[in-house]
Measured scan of single mutants.
Amino acid sequence: TVKFKYKGEEKQVDISKIKKVWRVGKMISFTYDEGGGKTGRGAVSEKDAPKELLQ
Rank of each mutant, 00 (worst) to 15 (best):
T1I: 15
T1P: 08
T1V: 15
T1Y: 14
V2N: 01
V2S: 01
V2Q: 01
V2Y: 02
V2E: 00
V2M: 08
V2I: 13
V2A: 02
K3G: 04
K3T: 14
K3P: 03
K3D: 05
K3W: 09
K3V: 11
K3L: 11
K3F: 14
F4L: 03
F4C: 03
F4W: 14
F4S: 03
F4K: 00
F4T: 02
F4N: 01
K5R: 13
K5P: 05
K5I: 15
K5S: 14
K5A: 07
Y6S: 08
Y6K: 06
Y6P: 02
Y6V: 14
Y6W: 14
Y6D: 08
Y6A: 06
Y6Q: 08
K7S: 06
K7T: 02
K7A: 08
K7H: 13
K7N: 12
K7I: 03
K7P: 01
K7G: 09
G8Q: 04
G8T: 05
G8V: 02
G8A: 05
G8K: 04
G8Y: 03
G8R: 03
G8C: 05
G8D: 08
G8W: 03
E9Y: 11
E9P: 02
E9A: 12
E9W: 06
E9H: 11
E9C: 06
E9Q: 14
E10V: 15
E10A: 09
E10R: 07
E10N: 12
E10G: 05
E10Q: 12
E10W: 15
K11L: 11
K11A: 04
K11G: 03
Q12M: 12
Q12K: 08
Q12Y: 13
Q12P: 02
Q12F: 12
V13C: 05
V13T: 06
V13Q: 01
V13D: 00
V13E: 01
V13Y: 02
V13P: 00
D14P: 14
D14H: 12
D14W: 08
D14S: 13
D14E: 13
D14L: 14
I15Y: 06
I15W: 04
I15M: 12
I15K: 02
I15Q: 03
I15L: 13
I15A: 04
I15T: 05
I15S: 03
S16N: 14
S16M: 09
S16H: 11
S16K: 08
S16E: 09
S16V: 10
S16F: 08
K17S: 12
K17V: 09
K17L: 13
K17R: 12
K17M: 11
K17P: 00
I18D: 00
I18Q: 00
I18H: 00
I18E: 00
I18W: 01
I18G: 00
I18K: 00
K19M: 13
K19V: 12
K19A: 06
K19H: 10
K19E: 06
K19Y: 13
K20L: 11
K20C: 09
K20W: 08
K20Q: 11
K20R: 12
K20G: 07
K20S: 12
V21Q: 02
V21S: 06
V21G: 02
V21K: 03
W22S: 03
W22H: 04
W22Q: 05
W22L: 03
W22Y: 07
W22E: 03
W22P: 00
R23H: 07
R23V: 08
R23L: 06
R23C: 04
R23T: 04
R23A: 05
V24G: 04
V24N: 11
V24Q: 13
V24E: 14
V24K: 10
V24P: 02
V24T: 15
G25L: 03
G25P: 02
G25H: 05
G25Q: 04
G25R: 05
G25D: 06
G25E: 03
K26M: 12
K26A: 14
K26H: 12
K26S: 14
K26Y: 14
M27E: 06
M27D: 05
M27R: 07
M27L: 13
I28T: 01
I28W: 04
I28K: 00
I28G: 00
I28P: 00
S29K: 15
S29L: 13
S29P: 02
S29Q: 15
S29C: 13
S29D: 04
S29R: 15
S29I: 13
F30K: 00
F30Y: 01
F30V: 01
T31Y: 10
T31N: 04
T31D: 06
T31P: 00
T31L: 14
T31F: 09
Y32Q: 00
Y32A: 00
Y32F: 14
Y32V: 02
Y32M: 01
Y32H: 02
D33A: 06
D33G: 03
D33T: 05
D33M: 06
D33P: 02
D33Q: 06
D33C: 04
D33L: 06
E34Y: 07
E34C: 07
E34S: 10
E34L: 15
G35M: 06
G35C: 04
G35I: 05
G35F: 04
G35T: 06
G35H: 05
G35R: 04
G36Y: 10
G36Q: 11
G36I: 07
G36R: 07
G36P: 08
G36N: 15
G36H: 12
G36W: 08
G36L: 08
G37S: 06
G37R: 04
G37C: 04
G37A: 04
G37N: 07
G37E: 05
K38L: 10
K38C: 04
K38G: 07
K38V: 12
K38D: 05
K38F: 09
K38I: 12
T39Q: 08
T39R: 08
T39F: 12
T39Y: 11
T39E: 11
T39I: 15
T39H: 08
T39K: 07
G40M: 09
G40A: 10
G40D: 03
G40F: 07
G40V: 06
G40R: 06
R41C: 11
R41Y: 15
R41L: 08
R41F: 12
G42Q: 02
G42F: 04
G42Y: 06
G42N: 02
G42A: 06
G42T: 02
G42W: 03
A43D: 09
A43Y: 14
A43P: 00
A43N: 11
V44T: 05
V44P: 00
V44C: 04
V44N: 00
V44G: 00
V44F: 03
V44M: 11
V44Q: 01
V44L: 10
V44Y: 02
V44I: 15
V44K: 01
V44R: 02
S45G: 07
S45W: 12
S45T: 12
E46S: 09
E46R: 09
E46H: 09
E46W: 12
K47C: 07
K47T: 11
K47P: 04
K47L: 13
K47H: 10
K47R: 13
D48L: 11
D48T: 08
D48I: 10
D48G: 07
D48K: 10
D48N: 13
D48P: 01
D48Y: 13
D48H: 13
D48S: 09
A49I: 05
A49S: 05
A49H: 01
A49Q: 02
A49E: 01
A49K: 01
P50I: 04
P50Y: 02
P50F: 02
P50V: 04
P50M: 04
P50T: 05
P50L: 04
P50D: 03
K51P: 14
K51T: 13
K51W: 15
K51S: 12
K51R: 12
K51I: 15
K51E: 13
E52S: 11
E52L: 10
E52T: 08
E52H: 13
E52A: 12
E52Y: 12
E52R: 08
E52V: 10
L53T: 01
L54I: 14
L54S: 06
L54V: 10
L54G: 03
L54W: 09
Q55L: 13
Q55G: 08
Q55V: 13
Q55K: 13
Q55S: 11
